[in-house]
């Protein structure tokens, strides 16, 4: 029962996400509405952490496996990618490195600056 209830709550939130996706004319999927809903439900104590924690952590742990079917589907994408394969592959590799580095460094720079300031006021 324990897991069933937890999984049920997560499914219910996913379902509400689907309803919002249907009602709101934006390309935002059910899962994104779901994250926001579940987060606020937890924050405002409408859902207790114990009600979703074990099933949720299990789902997150097995998440990599869920991407395998779609990725294997790239077999069928070969024909559409081939005409500009070099360009696509270069763009995918370069932008991924650049975005990760820029975003991570920017975040870290702001954190470090704040820590320095904090250090000064304390000292």
């Amino acid at each position: 029962m324990h897991y069933l209830k937890q999984f049920g709550i997560i499914l219910a939130v996913s379902f509400i996400g689907e309803i919002l996706n249907f009602l709101i004319d934006l390309p935002i999927p059910a899962s994104i509405y779901g994250i926001i809903l579940l987060f606020f439900a937890l924050e405002f104590r409408m859902v207790k952490l114990e009600w979703v924690k074990d099933a949720g952590k299990f789902l997150i742990a097995i998440m990599p496996v869920m991407f395998i079917p779609a990725a294997v589907g790239l077999l069928n994408a070969w024909d559409v990618l081939r005409p500009a394969l070099v360009a696509y592959v270069s763009i995918m590799v370069i932008t991924t490195v650049v975005v990760m580095a820029a975003s991570g460094c920017a975040t870290q720079a702001v954190i470090r600056r704040k820590e320095k300031k904090g250090g000064k006021t304390n000292g």
Partner: peptide
């Protein structure tokens, strides 16, 4: 791929609930 996907799609079925569950570590 279609033959494989007929069964494998059930793995992807869990993707939305798993993404929703990302709210837990965030909380």
């Amino acid at each position: 791929y279609e033959t494989y996907h007929a069964g494998a799609k059930y793995l992807s079925f869990l993707l939305t609930p798993a993404t929703v569950a990302l709210a837990i570590p965030l909380y």
